[in-house]
Amino acid sequence: MLDQVLLGVAVLVGLALVLNAWRLIIGPTVTDRILALDTMYINCIALIILLGIYFDTSLFFEAALLIAMLGFVGTAALSKYLLRGDIIE
């Protein structure tokens, strides 16, 4: 029963990733594209954690932690670039 629920939720998260990719492609402003990219990071983390639960291994959780750190740094760098035009002061 748990396997079916995990697969169903993984399909829904995959659908959310597709919708985020659509917003990333057609986003009218750069801000919309950055928010879509940030949401895609979060959805990828959720999908990797679901796969870790499904396959019963802790390796996926470490990968999700790395993606979370890189996603935060990437979003902060893109936001700073939009505000100031320069990342490194």
Rank of each mutant, 00 (worst) to 15 (best):
F55W: 11
V5F: 14
D3L: 09
R23W: 03
I88G: 06
V13Q: 05
V73Y: 06
G8R: 02
I26N: 08
G85P: 09
T29G: 05
R33S: 09
L82D: 02
I34W: 06
K80T: 14
M40E: 14
F61K: 01
P28M: 00
L50H: 05
L50S: 03
I88H: 05
L82N: 12
N43D: 10
Y54R: 10
I26G: 10
D32M: 07
S58I: 00
Y54W: 08
G74P: 05
P28T: 07
I45F: 06
T31F: 10
T29V: 02
I34S: 04
Y41L: 06
L19P: 03
L15K: 02
Y81D: 06
L50F: 07
A16E: 04
T31L: 08
I87G: 07
I34N: 06
L83R: 15
L78A: 14
V18R: 02
T57F: 00
F72L: 15
G71E: 07
I48Y: 00
P28R: 13
I87S: 06
M1A: 09
V18E: 03
G27L: 01
F60W: 11
L82V: 11
S79G: 13
P28L: 01
I67E: 04
L50R: 03
I42G: 07
I88N: 11
I88M: 08
M69D: 05
G14C: 08
I45P: 05
R33L: 01
A10V: 05
L37P: 00
A16S: 11
Y81S: 10
W22K: 12
V13N: 06
F72T: 15
L17S: 07
V13F: 05
Q4F: 12
E62H: 13
Q4K: 09
D56S: 11
D3R: 11
V9P: 01
D3H: 12
V11N: 03
V30Y: 08
A68R: 06
M40R: 09
S79K: 14
G52V: 00
F60E: 05
Y41G: 12
I53Q: 03
G74S: 14
I49A: 08
M40W: 11
Y41D: 07
M1Y: 08
L66V: 15
T39D: 09
L78F: 15
G8Y: 03
A68G: 13
I45C: 10
T75Q: 00
D3C: 04
Y41T: 15
R23Y: 06
F60D: 03
L83N: 11
V11H: 01
I49V: 12
D56C: 07
M40I: 00
R84C: 10
T39N: 13
R84F: 15
I53M: 09
V18T: 06
M69S: 15
A16H: 01
A68K: 07
L2S: 04
V11W: 04
L70I: 14
I42F: 10
